[in-house]
Design a protein around this nucleic acid. Structure first.
Lengths: 343, 343
DNA sequence: TTGTAGGCGTTATCAC
DNA sequence: GTGATAACGCCTACAA
């Protein structure tokens, strides 16, 4: 196979005995180049299979047309859906989407954000790792004059924007639903309160209990990461007392997956012995024989909204450091796992 | 907030009254710069918060340190896992991973690959869309002297490499398992035979039937995309005759999810009335109350292997157009959905 | 050991 | 309308 080296405007200018300036103008559809010349140049460009070199453009313009997206995990459906939505929205505007996962490590997050900055990305979308407490790397992005947009897991850093859902409301709604279905002793699988989302979900949960004059038994509280093992341990933990809970509100779906394994092992049945509601609307929740009630976090809308904030800022329709904080409406999906009295 | 413009080697050279050449050398740890000078330069660089501009480097060196990954969908666990694995492997080598999804559209695939070439990526990883029949865009990548590595859904284009699993073997194994569990009339949900993987899965299925002296009833064949709707239609289609199948081998998990909805609706039970095996080991398959037998496609190994082929080529340890075709071993996971005689 | 200068591919600002 | 030329930030012969 013959290797075609990329042709440049120099090649075209040489072939046509024109200056590179004219070639550049023609290629950029400038009005002040003679139609005949323009036609010749376009023909030559096509013949030589000319493709604009975006790296040169980026160096010249300071705009790389690349955005970075940093998430804890790629293979959680929620995150990959948000990323897919950002990609759909921004690839239409000729942006490239570079992705990084932190695996919840603060150090990795810092490293990746610096790498993105060095790559001269035009903006960064971040869903923070649970370890992140220091904001130095965030401020560095702002100091470089690049928009930083949080989604789902935001940090309160002045000058940044964010798109989140109303976690408090979602948790309140899910909990109220469990109570209406008869639950009186609801267990909670919580996330790391370092992250606002988990604090808010807990707060919404507690508020719903209060509003319904129910107490919270602290023995039924279990803190866990978003994974199956956490749910296994959590279920075992809350089930160890003589007094049993009659429902679980989990701040993530994966822990529900784990809990259900233990529930089967214990010979219990859902929703008869235990009502269950999760969080995130991971696909598996709807496939279960007893589909799991859960909160949809509107990932597609979230990605699209975040992308649009970015575009607004990059187009200077909005000040870079104007804090554009969008709170999307979550949707609670009641499913069989929490419907006690099904007809 | 004060905006810090990126400092460059010029800023350092000015501050220290040294030439940019010396600064560049010091920053690149060249041996021929006086230790004292080097120390001063490093100090100044740190003070000015100097960060290397990768775009300038890319223009100079012709290496952008960006790779592109193009997949049909991001929010399928298999694809996001492969991408995550590519990211893990290549970010260690300071590469950026830009992602694109085609939604199975050939046009979109071509558009994205051209965009990646314009961005001067150093290589492209592709899992082809089912519509792709023409190889012009692939050859363009090769003509530009960039490695192209297929994963999972490969096309037979000279000069490209690939990492796939042995789909034939996986399908043969899954089908044989169903037969051993007593299945005699196995239905098949097939994918688009335009894609080798689905053809191979079908072939493995048929071969297993033959080797066990079973006929294939063509009424029990249903072609579908990777989604729930396809499984719903497929199940209804194969169940419309008086004569019923006693098992389904589906070439993808999502269709199984759909089929199961209909199975519940019909009041049937798995594995009593119908044995089921799927393909891809999507997470939901193991969460089900009756976990679904499926084939694991080794996404982590696949991503890592593909990334390593890329690195080998980029480091010239291997010729760019040397066709490095890796076939990984799939793992069939027999689960409750296909185990007739559980103890 | 350090400095000068050219070039990577573009665009933009001047002239002509 | 068109052409030289500088500039974006970096690296690297080649000179000194």
């Amino acid at each position: 196979m013959k290797t075609k080296k990329n042709s440049t405007i120099h090649d075209i200018s040489k072939k046509l005995n024109l200056s590179i300036a004219t070639v550049s103008r023609a290629l950029n559809n400038s009005s002040k180049v003679k139609p005949r010349t323009k036609a010749k140049i376009l023909a030559a460009a096509s013949e030589l299979n000319y493709q604009q070199n975006h790296v040169a453009l980026a160096l010249k313009s300071g705009q790389s047309k690349i955005v970075g997206v940093v998430v804890p995990f790629l293979n959680h459906n929620f995150f990959s859906s948000v990323i897919g939505s950002i990609e759909n929205t921004l690839s239409k505007e000729n942006y490239h989407v570079a992705i990084y996962q932190t695996h919840e490590s603060y150090e990795t997050e810092v490293k990746h954000i610096k790498a993105l900055l060095n790559a001269q990305v035009d903006g960064i979308f971040l869903s923070a790792s649970k370890e992140t407490k220091d904001y130095g790397h965030i401020n560095e992005v702002l100091e470089r004059n690049k928009p930083l947009i949080f989604f789902d897991r935001k940090l309160n850093v002045p000058g940044t924007s964010s798109v989140v859902i109303d976690d408090f409301k979602a948790a309140y709604e899910a909990t109220t639903h469990l109570i209406k279905q008869g639950a009186k002793k609801i267990a909670h699988f919580a996330g790391d309160f370092q992250l606002e989302i988990y604090q808010n979900r807990f707060n919404g949960f507690i508020e719903a209990l209060k509003d319904n004059h129910l107490d919270f038994d602290k023995r039924f509280f279990y803190r866990t990461d978003q994974n199956v093992e956490g749910g296994i341990k959590g279920m075992k933990s809350i089930w160890q007392y003589k007094d049993k809970p009659d429902a679980i509100f989990s701040s993530n779906d994966f822990a529900v997956g784990g809990a259900i394994q233990v529930i089967r092992e214990y010979g219990l049945s859902i929703p008869k012995d235990l009502l269950i509601a999760g969080f995130s609307n991971e696909p598996f929740t709807q496939f279960m024989e007893t589909p799991i009630s859960t909160v949809d976090q509107a990932p597609l809308k979230m990605g699209e909204t975040a992308a649009e904030i970015f575009l607004k800022k990059i187009r200077k329709e909005e000040n870079l450091t104007k804090e554009n904080s969008i709170i999307l409406n979550p949707t609670f999906f009641p499913r069989a796992s929490s419907l006690k009295n099904r007809s």
